[in-house]
Amino acid sequence: MGNRKQLEIITESAIEWLIRICGISAILFVFGIFFFVFREGAEFLFGGLDLWQFLTSPEWYPTSVSQKRYGVLALMAGTASVTLLSMAIAVPFGLGAAIYVSEFCGPKAKETFKIVIELLAAIPSVVWGFIGLTLMNELIITLFDAPIGLTVLNGGIILALMSVPIIVSIGEDALKAVPDSYREAAEALGSTRWQMIYRVLLPAAKNGLLAAVLLGVARAVGETMAVLMATGHAVKIPGSVLDSVRTLTATIAAELGEAPVASDHYQVLFIIGILLFTITFAVNLIADLVVKGIKEQ
């Protein structure tokens, strides 16, 4: 008996430590990655790079022989335009589907729907890029009579299709977490399904729904391969959705292999990495603050 107790105490504390190490290592990894990226770009960031020009100039000529220029405004515009378009498509579709699955579906249809959504989420991004490069490209050329189909529109639609599964599944979780007693209370007061949904359900689930949307945004900002293939690789500020663009992520992916290690070009790509890091960090921070603000009301 005594032995067994001792053993239990040992395994208990061992498990506790294991879990603690898992937790701490997650934090360490995040800082480690940030540190590494930062170190690779630090030298040029603090010596040589004109930060103002970097952020405000649309001229990206990292390999020019006569005059190298490192302006990422056009790349940021590329990321922003593709992300905004994809969210304009994915948010209404994703939230609508989440509401449908959680409130209107029978149990059987729900199962099927969830499997389909999971399948959609499991498609590798390079396959999405492939669809953008071939099918969507031709579709846009014929539909809009455009010279090229690799555009903001193409990338936005592809990214929307990639973000919808995230928004649906997280959004559905958020709706499912709303106690059924709220629905029952509203319906017993005579509200219709729709009134119940927009007066009770959506306000009650808004934190979770916001999280769903922001995870979708993060997915869209960070996605690389699909947008690299679908947006046409033109460094310019887009004037319409039928213009080609290039995103921050696509630039890193396309150029890092060719930039000589430790050259200015190489370091600038890491600085773009830091920029991406900062953008996603800001999105998360804003989300946290908004959620906290909602809670305190």
Binding site: Y182, E184, A185, E187, A188, L189, T192, Q195, R199, A204
Partner: peptide, 28 residues
């Protein structure tokens, strides 16, 4: 359900303000 009100075993006010709870029925 407008003509027949119901009070439940566990109090289930809606997660909105006191004021909005009272006028919920009117709004609906």
């Amino acid at each position: 359900r407008k003509a027949i009100g119901m009070v439940f075993q566990r109090p289930n006010p809606l997660p909105i303000s006191v004021y909005e709870n009272v006028v919920f029925g009117l709004r609906v």
